[in-house]
Design a protein around this nucleic acid. Structure first.
Length: 205
DNA sequence: CCACGGATTGGCT
DNA sequence: GCCAATCCGTGGA
């Protein structure tokens, strides 16, 4: 069963310019596209986390706008890419209205198109082992490496043709798991992580 | 299987 | 100077 991505439509700005928890929840099942060397790298979004600077001390936007976080304070519909641990990039979908400082971190993607290109980007080889296949895009920094997303892509407009998200499945509530977020030390109690039940590309149970 | 620690930049206190 | 929205290799059970 090959997904006919050419027949699907981009999510419009209206989709992103809503409440962050709603957008996070509804991004599950949608198809992330990154055009790289003329090829469409594609995968289904299977795990996300919401961040909201107005009440969430784990959000980069908590405490106000800085040079680093200005994209996160823009109007919904841009990509916010940040660098961390001196090694990794992570990507977020900016949501809500201008000045809000809300975004959705992409944590898990199921690859569906141009997997060979992602394999080279991640492991510099093809013919991956089973373990390497599962490790291709099951984590926020694995995604940016596989899809070749870095600081150049910070601020990319998701309604244009470089990086965008296609409308696809609506996942039912019974197939979604909601948990606390991973890897943070503040506001840890907020249940703002969403993932598709039993999907192998979820970063962690 | 799990726990631990190193990598290595740059933002902010 | 401290430490991060992570990943991976190592070493032990």
């Amino acid at each position: 069963m090959t997904i006919q991505i050419n027949k699907l439509k981009k999510l419009p700005n209206k989709f992103y310019q809503r409440e962050v928890l709603k957008v996070a929840r509804e991004l599950l099942g949608k198809i992330f596209i990154r055009v790289y060397n003329g090829k469409k790298l594609a995968g289904i979004i299977v795990e996300v986390e919401a961040y909201d600077g107005s009440i969430d001390r784990a959000a980069h936007s908590f405490g106000g706008m800085t040079k680093r976080t200005e994209v996160m304070f823009a109007e919904g519909g841009l990509l916010y890419v940040y660098f961390t641990y001196g090694v990794h990039f992570c990507s977020n979908v900016v949501t809500g209205n201008k000045g809000e400082g809300t975004a959705v971190l992409l944590r898990g993607i199921e690859p569906i198109r141009n997997i060979d290109v992602m394999s080279i980007n991640r492991f510099n080889k093809n013919n991956l082992t089973e373990k390497e296949k599962r490790n291709l895009t099951s984590g926020p920094a694995k995604i940016t490496q596989a899809f070749n997303v870095g600081k150049e892509e910070n601020g990319t407009d998701l309604t244009k043709n470089k990086i965008y998200i296609l409308d696809y499945e609506n996942i039912s509530d019974s197939d979604i798991v909601i948990t606390k977020r991973i890897g943070i030390t503040r506001s840890v109690e907020l249940p703002w992580r969403f993932y598709i039940k039993d999907n192998p590309y979820v970063s962690k149970k």
